[in-house]
């Protein structure tokens, strides 16, 4: 029932009922002029689907808003079914509420279980520490690199190209590279040995599979500095140097020019990319799983371990942890957005 209407609407975008295109006209008709077309038979499709048109307001179907929602429909269907569906089924499982297998009384006990577990807070602190350190360091270093690359110098195009290199590289590849550099017998340890700073590999600090996940943070930095940096660089090139020159003639020193001229201009892009990076790092788990300790590790790793545990009772708890992660991400993003709005108003 729905499909013919769509087809009908689509057909009449090209040819409203009662009209014919120039190609349909015969030579005599063309010679007589356009007036004679007025009485021509309505287009076939209009007749065929006439009943539907009567039932559903035809004008409504031809209206722009109907076409808008028709074009959005497939994408919204996928996202509602897979994404919203996934979140809600997960929420149901975390509450022990799954009518399809006969669990019909929701309970909050899995939430209570994880929220009263000290391990949860150890994980939470570790997750926050990794996400915040990576995001803030990446933002600062990205600004530094963008300031370095905004001016033309010999080879600046090649350097900018190399700077983009990590952008399309999968995180796992970056992790594999960091392992080669940072283990106690890795390239950095060998360089330190060469420089005479250490004799044995075990004198090199533990940077991989360690509690503070130095390698994890370095992987994120390697990946995200170019991402933020390119956005900052694009803003810098778009703005030009006029504002700074004006500030300079007004007597602003280097730091003042950066703090009061450049930074406010960069803030919107910085906050958006910062939010994207933070949300990604907070919720991703492949890299901490690879480069971190078994315990304690970040929340997503803990949730995943609980999910694949042979003890199926752990599953609702992993779902509950997933929901808690989601809520924390959303709350922190909201705070960041509010913060950025305040900054924009002040600017």
């Amino acid at each position: 029932m729905f499909l013919p209407i769509c087809v009908n609407v689509w057909l009449h975008r090209s040819r409203p009922p009662g009209t014919r295109s120039l190609a349909d006209l015969s030579a005599p008709e063309l010679a007589e002029g356009v007036e004679s077309v007025e009485g021509a038979e309505p287009h076939v499709e209009a007749v065929k689907f006439a009943p539907f048109v009567k039932i559903f307001d035809y004008q409504m179907l031809r209206s722009e808003s109907f076409r808008i929602w028709l074009m959005l429909a497939p994408a919204l269907a996928i996202i509602v079914l897979l994404f919203v569906g996934g979140v809600f089924v997960g929420l149901g499982q975390s509450l022990d509420y799954m009518p399809i297998i006969g669990l019909e009384t929701p309970t909050a006990r899995h939430y209570l279980n994880i929220l009263t577990d000290p391990d949860f807070y150890t994980s939470l602190v570790l997750t926050l520490y990794i996400a915040l350190t990576s995001t803030l360091l990446a933002m600062v270093l990205a600004i530094a690199v963008a300031l370095l690359l905004r001016r033309h110098f010999t080879g600046s195009r090649i350097v900018t190209f190399i700077f983009q290199l990590p952008l399309p590289v999968p995180h796992l590849v970056a992790a594999a590279g960091m392992v080669l550099l940072l283990t106690q017998s890795g390239l950095l340890a060998r360089l330190a040995h060469q420089a005479g700073w250490l004799e044995q590999p075990n004198q090199f600090p533990v940077l991989v599979f360690d509690r503070w996940q130095v390698a994890t943070i370095l992987v994120y930095l390697w990946k995200e500095i170019p991402f933020i940096g390119l956005v900052v660089l694009a803003t810098l090139k778009g703005v030009g140097q006029e504002y700074e020159e004006i500030a300079q003639t007004l007597g602003a020193n280097r730091w003042q020019r950066f703090r009061y001229v450049l930074l406010p201009l960069l803030m919107p892009g910085l906050i958006t990319t910062g939010i994207i990076v933070f949300a990604y790092v907070f919720g991703s788990f492949e890299i901490p799983l690879l480069l971190g300790q078994r315990y304690p590790n970040v929340l997503p790793v803990t949730a995943y371990r609980a999910y694949i545990d042979p003890d199926l009772n752990q599953r609702p708890e992993s779902m509950a942890m997933g929901m808690v992660i989601t809520v924390i991400v959303i709350v922190l993003l909201n705070l960041a957005l509010r913060f950025s709005r305040r900054i924009r108003q002040e600017g």
Binding site: I79, F83, G85, V87, L91, G283, S284, F285, A303, G322
Partner: peptide
């Protein structure tokens, strides 16, 4: 709605939808 999947961890979504 369309940008939300970029911010909510994919792991959470697929653990839910797996069943």
């Amino acid at each position: 709605l369309i940008t939300a999947p970029l911010f909510v961890p994919t792991l959470v979504v697929i653990m839910g939808i797996h069943i």
